[in-house]
């Protein structure tokens, strides 16, 4: 497959929670190697959208195609798709009963069937990558928030995913821990990982994003390159939103 072929496509996607129209006619494409940042006010559907990409949430209308596979209700093997799509959550969601190392080895061993020794080697490689190899034998509850989130990133990387989804990975962290997680994400971007990030860290967006998407009320309002997006926002709502978050 060529460098720029799409890994994720959404075409005319609509989603309802009961009567509530959560996603309205969403169209967008992520090419391999793209870094996309999604922002928007609370309740605008950012989480909902990113969670439809590995079908933690189902959509009702339109098409979602991930790595060439159409996601729909009757599909045989959603797990095949999910193995290739890493996801990092706001609240880390590490497995508290497993040590850090076991958290990292779990999916490769149990899902991919990789041998223990090899899984351990990969796990240690990624723990070094997120710069906490010394925490390997601790339990998640013994780590700081920033460390936990870096473990969560490493856990996803251990599955060697083709694309990584981040849903507000730093918004549950104390300010001094935000940068250690962002540094990890920046270095991941520099290594060419395909990334879709919901975040309000505009510094991160300016540094690595190829495109920034602004959502409001379940719609994509604006999509542009970071420089254009921040310096010359087209839409009134985008300007208001940027005005609010850049004040702080």
């Amino acid at each position: 497959m060529s460098e720029n072929s799409p890994i994720i496509e959404m075409r005319g996607v609509n989603k309802w929670y009961g009567n509530y129209h959560a996603l309205r006619d969403i169209n967008f494409t992520v090419n391999r190697g793209d870094k996309i940042v999604i922002c928007g006010p609370s309740g605008s559907g950012k989480s909902t959208m990113i969670r439809t990409l590995n079908w933690l949430e189902a959509h009702q209308e339109g098409e979602i195609i991930v790595d060439g596979v159409h996601l729909h209700e009757k599909m045989k093997d959603i797990d095949k798709v999910r193995m290739e799509v890493g996801m990092v959550f706001q609240h880390f969601n590490l497995f508290p009963h497993l040590s850090v190392l076991q958290n990292l080895m779990a999916a490769p061993m149990w899902v991919r069937g990789i041998a223990k020794a090899e899984a351990r080697e990969t796990a240690m490689k990624y723990l070094e990558r997120v710069r906490i190899p010394e925490q390997a034998d601790k339990y998640p509850g013994q780590l700081s928030g920033g460390q936990q989130q870096r473990v969560a990133i490493a856990r996803s990387l251990c599955m060697n995913p083709k694309v990584m989804l981040f849903d507000e990975p730093t918004s549950a962290l104390d300010p001094e821990m935000v940068s250690e997680v962002l540094d990890t994400m920046v270095s991941l971007a520099q290594d060419g990982m395909t990334m879709v990030c919901v975040t309000h860290e505009m510094g991160f967006a300016k540094a690595v994003a190829d495109r920034v998407i602004f959502m409001d009320a379940g719609e994509i309002i604006e999509e542009n390159e970071p420089v254009q997006f921040f310096e010359n926002p087209q839409n009134e709502r985008t300007r208001n939103f940027l005005g609010q978050i850049l004040q702080h």
């Binding site: 590995n54 933690l56 095949k80 999910r82 959550f89 969601n93 590490l94 899902v111």
Partner: peptide
């Protein structure tokens, strides 16, 4: 979240 993390890893 434990279910979501597991399912998103392909469990």
């Amino acid at each position: 979240g434990q279910w979501e993390a597991s399912r998103s890893l392909g469990f």
